[in-house]
Amino acid sequence: MPAGFTGQGVDPLTCAETIRILSTEFRITSNIPELIERLAYLTQRAEQDLPVLEHCEISVQREDGEYRISGGEGKKDDCELSLPMAFEAMFARLHDLGMRHFPDHIRIHAASGFGRDGMVLLVGEKWSGKTTTAVHLLLEGFEIVGDELVLLRHGQAVTFPRPFYLRHSAIDLLPKLGGMTDRAPFVHAETAGKLIAIDPLKLGRHWKIRPAPVGTVVFLEPNHGGTSSLRACSKVEMVRRVLAQSSPPSSGREDWVADFCSTINEADTVIARMGDLASATDLFRRLLS
């Protein structure tokens, strides 16, 4: 019987699962056991130190050869022809609904964690090694809480909770993962190939999502084959680099650039040339501990 299968009080052919994303708690019901099983890919059980503002029912039903995804105030039903497409549509719906309570937040594409002065953002262009670095630091004992998205408003940042999605090709760089990746859920992404969902809790790490001021912003530059090094980065240059990895608030609030600049101005700003991970550990330990 799949995880999440409920035998009491509901249709015996219906599975259910509960997922918390920031201030929204979702209850997902489906007559497709495989879908509930695949939720392991996006389900996270991070502690989230934010108030629950909304309970939302999402339904995914197989009807007459198609998949109907419904639920969420103001959202029209989606109909998909395959399970993977239904899964993606449901994922997008959860993401949209989870973000609804954060319309004024700037979205920064960054890995994130906590250091001595508050939140640490690890920003970089695509393929710069954000997730690999994040998982490495997690394995080395740093408190890393996300690998993808950070929401920022008035200097306070909060990590969007989701598992870390590590490229299969990066596993060899992270021997401390051991055999856990053999058992971890995974998907195949069009451009990135096989992605392994890494859950910090399953690595025995503390995983607590909470708002905090931004203390340090690190911009990652790849230096494949070399050693890792850090150098200071001017505030204006860091604004330029990080803005390129950010999106304005969906509300369109007018002071978002000022908010962004003020946050960068108050944070330590560093460029990390990422070579071998072993030499990076000591650098990050000095920077963040």
């Binding site: 505030k235 204006v236 604004v239 002071d255 650039v257 600049c261 960068i264 101005n265």
Partner: peptide, 10 residues
């Protein structure tokens, strides 16, 4: 909107 930074202006 003029944002004064420690080392420049945005």
């Amino acid at each position: 909107e003029i944002n004064i930074m420690h080392d420049g202006v945005v």
